[in-house]
Amino acid sequence: MGRVAVIDYGMGNLRSVSQAVIHAAQALGGAAPEVIVTADPAAVRAADRVVLPGQGAMRDCMRELREAHDGELLAAVREAAASKPLMGVCVGMQMLLDHSEEQDTPGLGLMPGRVLRFRLDDALQPDGSRYKVPQMGWNRVRQHAFQGGAPHPVWAGVPDEAWFYFVHSYHAAPADAAHTAGSTEYGARFTSAVARDNIFATQFHPEKSAAHGLALYRNFLRWRP
């Protein structure tokens, strides 16, 4: 199973992501991969899989990633996105797209589309209360067909419309609907997971989503795109 690199570019808290990936890896028993938390471009290049987390403002995340090791970390992430299983989480997912409305920030352009703010300022929920932004809490994720077939293999064993933990004010809007791997209802239906080729990424936090979240990390560690 080899080695998994959780990318540490100095933004926010990676502990919960790395703990959950380690927990998921241990559940794979004898085939458990080694999990490293690293900002070292060489370590990312040597890894078999990459997890790209992200927390806070996208502009700060992009800046830190770009400036780490004189751009070498970003180059290593781009190489990973072209060659091995890569899982993005939260802002780590949003960065994959072309552009975010958050502080008008360009993304990595690894998936066509934009990141938009929830437009719910005056909207009311069915019970008459206002929609809150950030969306914070547990919501259901509908699994979408992948490459015209069954739901993506990273969903294996997770029921359709399972609950996951979200906290975000912005959401992805992929230009190509085929890249939507999961969707969620909050005022309107939005893309809550994306996938293409060797990339899978979620807006929600699998590391905070109890058993279903750990299942997602286990599936990612076994995934052979």
Binding site: G12, N13, Q55, A57, P134, M136, H168
Partner: peptide, 8 residues
């Protein structure tokens, strides 16, 4: 909030 994000 500016350093770590409103979410936390």
């Amino acid at each position: 909030s500016e350093r770590y994000g409103a979410q936390c």
